[in-house]
Design a protein around this nucleic acid. Structure first.
Lengths: 228, 228
DNA sequence: CGGCGGCGTCAAGGGTGCGTCAGGGATGGC
DNA sequence: GCCATCCCTGACGCACCCTTGACGCCGCCG
């Protein structure tokens, strides 16, 4: 689900945005001033920020610069100012789009979709290693592809999900409960037999010698660990 | 140097843009209609496109769709229409920004800088392959043409759109939801029966043996993948 | 030495997703 | 106004995936 951070000090505008966004299945956080905005952005890692420039505690452009110091998240600026200079300043500070109030909700939502859409590929490349290689096989998380001895390995959705969690936590121990909850959902946690079955599948499809696994390692009583 | 493609049928607007852009050390191509725009885009690979929606030969939205079939180049739309519907349509078709005439040159240039800036990292990837060949058929994304055994293959608009998304993500798995949203619109996501029908069409028209597809591969429960 | 818990393996069942086909409705061109 | 084309929809059969249970093995502890 796409997460939006709404920053505005006027409650009625925030309310209107929140209602419209939630109705369209966005997850929404809201901040009323710049400090809160920067804090929430750091804590929640939104996929897009809607930012009013007229904030009580600090200049909106400073908020943009604060965000741009560490993230490329799309920033959509709202402002009552029509002045060209303000727009140029905000855009050059790192904003992605600039909408003047009063704005049409349809247009705003369309601009929001556009901003999220073009940020999509960058999200996958966001510093993470997408391709993981071991001596025996290769996993491409972006393409959802596993290759062993030059041939593609077919994995079922559940197998993929499990493999993904393990690989993303590469080297670290992942507890059984955590695996169950991430793959099967939050209401699971004790069905360790699922793990046994699917770990066996993964080993059979990827390990060179499934009975003596080198990459999918069992930590008895605790969980599993992926080692390259 | 940044290369800009300007598309507008009004000579004085083109002239104003060209002068301003060249003064700021952009390299500029200009097109007066949609057909010429698509042609120049394919030939010159601009870093950003400035597109007037009111063209003499075709609807501006069609130009956007034509470009989006094979490239993610930023598209900045110019238009005299202030209607919200027009903006939404253009943005959802794949435009990155929408500026209404009359526009301030400073603002336009700032929006252009913003569009170019955020496209920068993706430019290095250079995934702009326009013609894709397989053992069994050839797809030319720019010319919107598919050839199999020396003959042109007729594809319906929806079939094309689906093929485009798959080919553009060549080798990568594309989830069912992503396919549905890109081809049928943002409000779709669960109608997997559409996909089944149209994937069957594509396979029937392009695969050598439609019942044993080699290029349009199903990943059960997850999505589809194009392999050359 | 015997019991016990955790793990790996295997096989079978029920359910779900996928491919296929055909028909109705909408749309656009002549 | 007619006709062709394209999109959507439903039904059906099949293959595959998830789940579940049983069984044997190993290490640990009493």
């Amino acid at each position: 689900m796409t997460r939006v951070l709404v920053v505005d000090d006027e409650p009625q505008i925030v309310r209107a945005l929140v209602i419209n966004l939630k109705a369209r299945k966005y997850e929404v956080d809201a901040a009323a001033d710049g400090a809160q905005a920067l804090e929430l952005a750091a804590a929640r890692h939104p996929d897009v920020v809607v930012l009013d420039l007229g904030l009580p505690d600090m200049d909106g452009v400073e908020v943009i610069k604060g965000l741009r110091g560490w993230t490329r998240v799309p920033i959509l600026v709202l402002s009552a100012r029509h002045s060209s200079d303000e727009k140029v300043e905000a855009l050059d500070a790192g904003a992605d789009d600039y909408v003047t109030k009063p704005f049409g909700m349809d247009e705003l939502l369309a601009r929001l979709r556009a901003a999220v859409r073009r940020a999509e590929p960058a999200a996958g490349a966001g510093g993470d290693e997408v391709v993981v290689e071991t001596e025996d096989f290769t996993v491409d998380l972006a393409a959802k592809k596993a290759v062993r001895e030059g041939r593609d390995v077919r994995l079922t959705p559940t197998e993929w999900h499990l493999l993904e969690v393990l690989v993303r936590n590469g080297g670290k121990l992942v507890s059984q409960k955590q695996l169950l909850q991430e793959v099967w959902g939050p209401s699971y946690g004790t069905e360790t037999n699922y793990l046994r079955v699917y770990m066996a599948q993964l080993r059979r499809k990827l390990e060179a010698d499934p009975s003596h696994p080198r990459h999918f390692i069992t930590e008895p009583g605790m969980g599993y660990r992926f080692e390259r």
